[in-house]
């Protein structure tokens, strides 16, 4: 599977879970939101978004249903499950730990 090069492995999962935790949405909206909130810093190709979503679905973290979209067409909407919420907490905690540690290191004064 091709991975967006500038995303740390596994962080795409975290982002998707977080976005879907805020509200349930379809793939297109997810891609728009991802671009929006990250200020276009995080580049996720439109194509590779879907394997990531399908993976989360198959893990049981998000669930999908077909319903009318904002432009009144049928689209697949994803929502977080209970398991997904737990997973999000876990991954967020992990991320905090990791980024905190990295920040600490980066802030070390050079001699």
């Amino acid at each position: 599977m091709s991975k967006p090069s500038d995303l740390v492995q596994g962080t795409l999962d975290l982002l998707l879970l977080k976005i879907l935790a805020l509200e349930s949405m379809n793939g297109w909206s997810v891609s728009q939101r991802l671009r929006q909130i990250s200020g276009e810093v995080l580049q996720v190709s439109d194509g590779s978004l879907y394997p990531a979503l399908h993976k989360l679905e198959q893990e049981g973290w998000i669930t999908a249903e077909w319903r009318a979209s904002e432009n009144n067409r049928r689209a697949k909407f994803y929502a977080l499950t209970r398991l997904g919420r737990k997973q999000l907490e876990k991954e967020a905690a992990n991320w905090d730990r990791l980024s905190g540690a990295i920040t600490q290191i980066i802030k070390l004064k050079e001699a």
């Binding site: 439109d46 590779s48 879907y50 399908h54």
Partner: peptide
């Protein structure tokens, strides 16, 4: 072009089904 190879991504999605 933006979707860079729909078929490939489809195959990746299929892989996710396990």
């Amino acid at each position: 072009r933006a979707m860079d190879g729909i078929e490939r991504h489809k195959e990746e999605c299929r892989d996710m089904r396990k």
